[in-house]
């Protein structure tokens, strides 16, 4: 399976609160909340780190089998990307998120 790359959209404002990431889309003023595991994926979505590597980080931090973590991460990406706040590509994504994962 070819690897995928994910990147945060630049059209958002995000802030960590209580272990969960709160994200506001400036496009349609939709407010998103990610749980702790989803937040780890979000913070690692720099456009340069392949999803498989992000999943490896999940496996090292959480009690989960690699196969389960990969399947869940792919599902999460597939669910969130249509909302436009997470970009997905088969190739590294450049300059999609020049600022940090947590922005004002």
């Amino acid at each position: 399976m070819s690897d995928r790359y994910i990147a945060r959209s630049s059209a958002i404002a995000a802030r960590m609160l209580g272990g969960e990431m709160m994200i506001m889309s400036s496009v349609d003023s939709t407010f998103y909340t990610l749980n702790e595991v989803a937040t780890v994926i979000w913070q690692a979505a720099d456009g340069r780190t392949p999803l498989s590597e992000i999943v490896s980080a999940l496996v090292s931090q959480f009690e989960v089998e690699p196969e389960v973590a990969l399947r869940d991460a792919q599902q999460f990406v597939d669910d969130l990307s249509p909302h436009g706040i997470l970009l997905v590509s088969d190739h590294p994504i450049a300059d999609s998120s020049p600022r940090s994962a947590e922005t004002a």
Binding site: S29, A38, V40, L58, A73
Partner: peptide, 20 residues
């Protein structure tokens, strides 16, 4: 020690409608 795993999920709501 590793932390308990929960499936990565998100929820969302339209702010305009919430600001009901």
């Amino acid at each position: 020690a590793k932390k308990p795993y929960r499936k990565p999920e998100f929820r969302f709501e339209k702010v305009f409608e919430t600001l009901l």
